[in-house]
Design a protein around this nucleic acid. Structure first.
Lengths: 338, 338
DNA sequence: CATCGGCCTGACAACGTTGTCGAAATTGGA
DNA sequence: TCCAATTTCGACAACGTTGTCAGGCCGATG
């Protein structure tokens, strides 16, 4: 009742040897049809299911048909779209996905990777949170495909699939400048995150191109929740010289900022471009202009790199950049004073 | 290079027996500190990681510390919140989550369950898509904890965590009636899904209480995508006698309906209550009144049932109902003609 | 000096499965 | 009838790990 039947039980019930039962279960040829039948019956009677892990252990050095996905937060739309893309690619190959959330905690990143490798995951799909992945060097050297997604690896050479953060951010900010804004605030995620840093760089570059020196008081980093962003935006908008436009460098930050502007009744007056699209952005009033990433395409690309490596292809680690695209919807086209 | 070091390699390098190496790796007592050191060094040199599956196999009948989650769609906010709740509960116990999307495909449900049990998942967290789970009977009888979430099991007795669909739907519809509506349309998901059926029942019950006979032309089932819902709503709203209010029984249906009403400019005139909350519902114009489920709480409750069973507690299968709550935000308070 | 008890250590078997290989059973042909 | 070729079958070992158990070593005790 508490222990599952093994192949030994099946063989005993069918009156054949262990090996013959194994042959039937694996559909090998060279078994008389009488024995095939009796084994099949025994399998049905006992509701036998092969122990996949034991099987993989024996077929040794082979695959567990499982991939570990180290994500930022499985419940965040960006992460879950990556997850879904990976799953869709894996589905045709009968590969299962282990998924876990890191929540920007470096220790948790390593704990998850360790848990996945201890379970012999065939490959790793990693959105890194820490600033050092040297701990993965041995794993990569041992031949496990590892793909970094959204953020590049540090300390190891491995495939990566990234968004064009710097250029995308610059495009967003140029768009606001083109609509007459000069005093453009930057609200961004934790400065430790590479993508946040790159987007900030794009922001500065675009301003510099036009000889604009940003007001340091209008630059806020380390906003990791919607509410932190809301409060920061409230603070900025409440000053005597509020910014005429906002570049919000992450989707939760964008939403928090919108809430703040709404509550002040300023949402129809100030410009806003967000980095990363989000559901219903087009239904808000005004609709939100964004630099859209394409997380599904990123996930798909990363999954393909993984499977090509699993299929035995080899190449020098490459970085694949997925372009971002500006989607003008209204909030970014509100004119500024210039 | 291609094969990972085993404990045998560690033992050889450290000049000790396999068993002694095992003892060191597992932190057992009774090993001289000299040997502990040399084994530790060998582990470091080879970057040895224990093979968790082999270890679990040997410790036999024991746990793999992995739970399989059969979800509707990992990228859907409802599913991903369930996933996250499960993960949060599992995290403290070092248990990993296998997750997969079913997409309402009954075959896929069974394929996922089979994949998870073949990998010796300790327990299953299932949002069922099919109308028959008898195939799980043997697994449950064998003692594997299985919890059904959002939809009840059919053909087997097992724990379930459900939303209060019928009562919630009735409350939503009564709310519209109280605001003066009589001609209330029902737009719902696939009629094969139990939750859709229950919500439809709640809709009819609430109308019946007030002696209202719904117009059959204003009842549309089987809307499984946002766009299908949008088109259905466009059709209804374009007739000579359009409904004065809508009860939309699922979040994508709600959003599709909102898009349709917007495009007709009717969104400020007709009543709307959606079942299941969604992000930014409060920022739309008008803000959307919903019957909110609490997927995080549902996932948490289901996870707790799983872990209590894994801890050895036993009880007769129970059904846990998580209440839904009406959140009036505007769209449901638009007055009707009565 | 012989004996005892405690501490370390390693040989062996086993978890559930499959690859190898040789033995047994069957078939066909002369 | 007999031999060889073929088919079918099962004993055994192995995958990487850990539980069991017996043996070796040590100092302490009588």
């Amino acid at each position: 009742m508490d222990t599952r039947p093994t192949l030994r039980d099946v063989a005993a019930l069918a009156g054949v040897s262990l090996k013959t039962a194994s042959r039937v279960v694996n559909g090998e040829t060279g078994v008389s049809s009488a024995k095939v039948d009796s084994v099949r019956r025994a399998v049905g009677r006992l509701n036998y299911r092969p122990n996949f892990t034991a099987s993989m252990l024996r077929r040794s050095a082979s695959r567990t048909a499982a991939i570990g996905a180290v994500l930022e937060d499985v419940a965040n739309p960006f992460s879950s779209t990556l997850h879904r893309a990976l799953e869709d690619t894996a589905r045709g190959r009968q590969v299962m996905i282990f998924a876990g959330s890191v929540d920007e905690d470096p220790d948790r990143e390593q704990a998850l990777v360790t848990a996945f490798t201890a379970r012999q995951a065939d490959a790793l799909f990693v959105v890194p949170a820490s600033d050092d992945q040297t701990y993965l060097a041995a794993e990569i050297a041992a031949g496990t495909p590892v793909v970094f997604v959204d953020r590049p690896p540090v300390g190891v050479r491995a495939d990566a699939v990234l968004s064009d953060n710097t250029a995308g951010a610059a495009t967003a900010v140029r768009h606001l400048i083109a609509h007459g804004h000069r005093d453009i605030a930057y609200l961004g995620d934790l400065a430790t995150i590479t993508t946040a840093e790159q987007r900030f760089r794009g922001y500065r570059e675009a301003l510099a191109e036009h000889g604009i020196r940003p007001d340091p008081a209008h630059i806020v980093h380390d906003l990791h929740t919607e509410d932190a962003a809301r409060q920061a935006a409230l603070r900025l908008a409440g000053t005597a010289q509020p910014p005429t436009a906002y570049f919000t460098a992450q989707n939760l930050v964008t939403i928090g900022t919108i809430r703040a502007l709404r509550s002040l009744g300023a949402h129809e007056r100030v410009g806003l471009v967000g980095f990363d699209d989000f559901p219903l952005a087009d239904l808000l009033q005004p609709a939100v202009t964004v630099m859209a990433q394409d997380p599904y395409r990123m996930g798909r690309a990363a999954a393909e790199l993984i499977f090509r490596r699993l299929d035995g292809e080899t190449w020098e680690p490459t970085t694949h950049v997925v372009p971002t695209v500006l989607i003008p919807r209204g909030s970014g086209e509100i004119p500024g004073p210039h």
